[in-house]
Amino acid sequence: MPDQRETGLSKYWKLFTSTFYLSAFTFGGGFVIIPLMKKKFVDELHWMEEDEMLNIAAIAQSSPGSVAVNASIFIGYRIGGIPGAAVTILGTVLPPFLIISVISMFYAAFRSNAIVSAVLKGMQSGIAAVIADVVVSMSGKIVKQRKWVPVVTMLGAFIATWYFSINVVFIILFCGVVGAFTTLYELKHSPEQ
């Protein structure tokens, strides 16, 4: 349930400035923001326990949408109810919105410059390498689980998108159904129960 310890505008202002600050200085997206949120909300403000933060991280990570937005909605709700969630969404979305707005306005003029276009062309190889690195790490973790379903899912999904150009949404829905059945099967046959 929403926390009642601190009330009034000062709490919402602190929620806004905290999420705004975290969002403005978290580069790369994804899971990076979780340890920073833990530092802010658990260690610094003592608004929640570490275990709770880890649960929030797991839920934010496994739900649709961006991890940062999901986690801040959850934290906002936990600290200040629905108004709290509204405040943290605003705090999280505003920094990238403002920064990209400014960049987009100059993008067209920028892109036609010979030097800029050469640098961006060089960066294409860099971003391809960054993605390759991410894929190698992530697929390595999946192979190391030594289960055949995830490996087959991964290979099948790759062939489906890359070779057959099947709609990404269908693949996700299909794999969700497969995930549901394997999870139910594992829960049923797990030795602890």
Partner: peptide, 14 residues
């Protein structure tokens, strides 16, 4: 269930 999607997500990123 959502964890079961991870391999597909990796494939699509690839």
């Amino acid at each position: 269930i959502l964890g079961g999607l991870r391999p597909a997500v990796v494939a699509m990123i690839a």
